[in-house]
């Protein structure tokens, strides 16, 4: 797809996605942060955040994101998901102070949400921009 074709994408889609974008971020973080006492949680909010990458792809399908870096961020958060419970749960901090339970769950939801968001986003982007194994087709 050439550059001119991208700029020729429907202006309605561009405007609507542009207007919805902040609300998608808001909804994603709302679902994540309130996950421990309302429906939702890390995975659901993370998938809402992943749709941000998808929305960007719909409006502007250019492969200019460094998916390797996004993948690294995702792996970093995956490591944190393992480290934080080890540090807080197994040392008995959360069980000793009941006031910490809410913040602990919110923190875990946030970590899971961001990890899932980046993970799904990278998966979708890699799939969408996959060019085959070094071949292009021309007719």
């Amino acid at each position: 797809m050439s550059e001119t074709q991208i700029l020729g994408e429907s202006i309605i889609i561009r405007m609507v996605v542009g207007m919805l974008y902040p609300f998608m971020v808001l909804l994603g973080f709302y679902v994540i942060v309130n996950g421990h006492y309302t429906p939702g949680g890390g995975f659901q909010g993370g998938s809402v955040l992943a749709t941000l990458f998808v929305a960007r792809y719909v409006v502007f399908p250019v492969d200019d994101t460094d998916s390797e870096r996004l993948h690294t961020i995702q792996r970093l958060f995956l490591m944190l998901i393992l480290v934080v419970p080890t540090a807080l749960l197994f040392t008995g901090v959360v069980t000793r102070y009941p006031a910490l339970r809410g913040p602990y769950l919110t923190l875990m939801d946030l970590l899971i949400g961001i990890q899932v968001g980046f993970g799904l986003g990278v998966a979708v982007l890699r799939f969408a921009f996959f060019q085959g194994v070094g071949k292009t087709w021309h007719l």
Binding site: P39, Q44, S47, A50, T51, V124
Partner: peptide, 13 residues
């Protein structure tokens, strides 16, 4: 919870 996941992943991604 499943409804949110299904709506986002099933009909979105």
């Amino acid at each position: 919870e499943l409804a949110i996941a299904e709506a986002v992943i099933g009909s979105g991604l």
